[in-house]
Design a protein around this nucleic acid. Sequence first.
DNA 1: GTTGGCACTCGTTCACCCGGAGTGCCAGAT
DNA 2: ATCTGGCACTCCGGGTGAACGAGTGCCAAC
Lengths: 352, 352
Amino acid sequence: MDEPKLDRRRLEVLRAIVEDYVATQEPVGSRALVERHNLNVSPATIRNDMALLEEEGYIHQPHTSAGRVPTDKGYRLFVDRLTNVKPLTGAERRAIHNFLDEAIDLDDVVSRTVRLLAQLTRQVAVVQYPSLSRSAVRHVELVSLSTSRIMLVLITDTGRVEQRVVEVSAIDEASLGELRARLNAQIGGRRLAEVPALLADFARLMPAGELLDDPARAPQPVAVDALCASLLEMIVEQREERVVLAGTANLARFGQDFPDSIQPVLEALEEQVVLLKLLGEATAPSLLTVRIGRENGFDQLTSTSVVTSGYGRGEDTLAQLGVLGPTRMDYPGTMGAVSAVARYVGRILEQA
Amino acid sequence: MDEPKLDRRRLEVLRAIVEDYVATQEPVGSRALVERHNLNVSPATIRNDMALLEEEGYIHQPHTSAGRVPTDKGYRLFVDRLTNVKPLTGAERRAIHNFLDEAIDLDDVVSRTVRLLAQLTRQVAVVQYPSLSRSAVRHVELVSLSTSRIMLVLITDTGRVEQRVVEVSAIDEASLGELRARLNAQIGGRRLAEVPALLADFARLMPAGELLDDPARAPQPVAVDALCASLLEMIVEQREERVVLAGTANLARFGQDFPDSIQPVLEALEEQVVLLKLLGEATAPSLLTVRIGRENGFDQLTSTSVVTSGYGRGEDTLAQLGVLGPTRMDYPGTMGAVSAVARYVGRILEQA
DNA sequence: GTTGGCACTCGTTCACCCGGAGTGCCAGAT
DNA sequence: ATCTGGCACTCCGGGTGAACGAGTGCCAAC
């Protein structure tokens, strides 16, 4: 798999090119390279290496007699083999702690996280709300609003509360209380992912009275069905997950990095669907994913890269968060920030 | 108050300058003016008028021997006296109806409205959630989660649901039921604005048992106080209102209109506080407000204008919505769109 | 495999010039 | 008193061309 033609020095040259280009935003030439990094060879040697790297598609020359610029393939190699995530400074680490520790509820955690990430990386930050399906039921509440309307409230252990109103045939308070108790016994504390199966059982057994001490108090099947159906809908519907955004202003700072304009990028960022796709499938917590240029699959985003990480409680990934910026970005730094924030948010969620 | 020096033709000239400049985005000269509008005078005459308009501060010359550009003061006069809101086309009107009629709940109405407004005006749209304080209490629910924790749920007639959990000293189910009934009798159907006063009475009378048939069942004062306090907090806190945004990508289309960069504008738009201030105090429904350039009071937004309108049910303003764009914007068109959307959203809320 | 040298290519910058658009002003016409 | 045509003037923008410099590729020598 390794390209045998790339010996140690050539890789070093590629790394130097990426680093310099990211720093200066200008094509980098052979002389500048030997000066800034202490490669103990002459510019001419570097030129030979560059010619080879270009042949292999890792770098590219905007026009004859210009310096070289990394290609997407070059960045990819850089990220995969030539760098490690850069650990944050103590000050940054402290800033994360201080800022996130003040969060008062889930909304606040998410909103603080996204702003923090944007500020830390000076780029666009994206945070997905903890997914319902990964979290567990803390409590289900049934509130009768009138004789035939029930409000269904679902509280999860990530602190999210969802409610909706259900129309049912008349049901009396006593039955409702019984139902509430049984329902909580059945699904309380269980993963949302397990709930559909459990509800199916519940809908089958409950009306038959099999779960009750006094079968005479079994509620009407139709009411139970309606409630279960609504509960299921809530869970499924919420899987269409919410995403929040911050730092779009940072895009403007990189105006020159985008071939035409930042308009298509801003447009893409307004589409929830696009954002969700960018964050991608849930990965293990603190496992970084980097998508470079075309890899992210949207034409409007060919000159952007995305760095994402799962976050969650312990081993469970509850959702994804990440950062979007120009392909020419500080990968080690960004990866460090994303990883650190993901880890810390996870820890906060554990306490809650 | 009228500047007597501005006779009919001079005003006409100002209008022509604004219209042409908005259309072409280039300083407009005397000759072009007489050609495009059929003013029946010579360019020289227009030049005299322009000199006067400039002296009065309505227009401005970027440099000697360039055409004229309207100043903020010029736009102001234009908006106040030289134009009327432009009615929408039939197609646009139909688009509004079709798109908004499909909304399924309050969140959906708001989200559709903001996207619609952005698309219609091709600018940044801002919509404030209907304010709790203007709406009325539909129902208050008390749910005991455990012996000492009660969930308080407030449902308003705009369809909003807010909940929070309150810690109280132990309270039994019967007292809770009584409390719920009395509380609803006291504040159900009332405006949120009236609620604080009503709650004060309630907290005074209820514990004393004066409102009960059986004074022995009066709940502990401390529990009532805690509940009332939380309810008040909910109402007050929600006055810090939510705002949603769409169409930021449209800013990029106007890149040249912003002296330096759109960055400060994007930054401003990320601040909820700024957005709320821009939307401003509630005004009567369908009453348009236009703030031009510096009038909006933010340094970052000196080259933007904001067109807002209240919207609501009948005569009640529930919240504000509006559009933000470069000072050089199509005022009549934008005003027409904002006004039409505000009116229609109001009508939708009436049905709900 | 590395190096120094050299010819060559291009993009960038600057000075310069020119054309055109637009102005202000003035004297004369209405 | 107001409008108009004419005229001199200003200034921006675009185009041209030269000088410059950064960078390259190649080759012969080490």
